[in-house]
């Protein structure tokens, strides 16, 4: 399945406190979390993410995206905000696991991420890792998921995968 959407571009080391501040962790309702997603980011303050994101928009970060707390609330908030896929130079380890486990595709493209700007339009196929920047005409390739991690992603997350295995 491919996704076409507009880019919300963020910098390096976007931490999970920025993605969803701890003051909102007294709920784990995806809608509540989405309403405060990226609230503490100092980027795009003129048109904040939570109130301006459109279903299908794609989030793009720099290196070490999702560092910090293990809160699964962070990828849940991004997914519930309507973002179907996140692209970054690389992801922090726990965030990466959580993304796969909840069925939010995450694609790592290293330095190529610098060729994607805020507002660009992308066409992304998470199953092949092919990313087309429709604004610039460039194409990037993300590393495919290894081994059974691919199976978890295909099943739509870890719970489905475990249930299918049973």
């Amino acid at each position: 399945m491919t996704h076409e959407g507009k880019v919300w571009r963020y910098g390096d080391n976007i931490d999970t406190d920025v993605i969803i501040p701890a003051r909102y962790l007294n709920s784990f309702d995806p809608k509540d979390l989405a309403a405060h997603c990226m609230e503490d980011s100092d980027e795009h303050q003129d048109a904040p993410f939570a109130t301006n994101v459109v279903e299908g928009d794609i989030m793009v970060g720099g290196k070490n995206f999702g560092c910090g707390s293990s809160r699964e609330h962070a990828p849940v908030a991004i997914k519930a905000a309507g973002v179907p896929v996140v692209i970054a130079a690389d992801f922090a380890r726990i965030f990466y696991r959580n993304g796969i486990n909840i069925g939010l595709p995450l694609l790592e493209i290293g330095e190529d991420v610098k060729k994607i700007s805020h507002g660009d339009k992308l066409k992304v196929d998470p199953s092949t890792g092919v990313i087309e920047n429709l604004t610039t005409g460039e194409t990037f390739h993300a590393q495919p998921l290894p081994g059974f991690v691919q199976e978890i992603a295909k099943a739509g997350g870890l719970i489905n995968y475990i249930k299918e295995k049973k």
Binding site: F28, S70, R71, E72, P75, I94, R97, N98, N101, I102, G157, L158, I159, I162
Partner: peptide, 14 residues
């Protein structure tokens, strides 16, 4: 090592 809630939920079962 740290994980998220889905990993933990699965680990409590398996």
């Amino acid at each position: 090592t740290g994980v998220g809630s889905t990993d933990l939920g699965v680990a409590m079962a398996t």
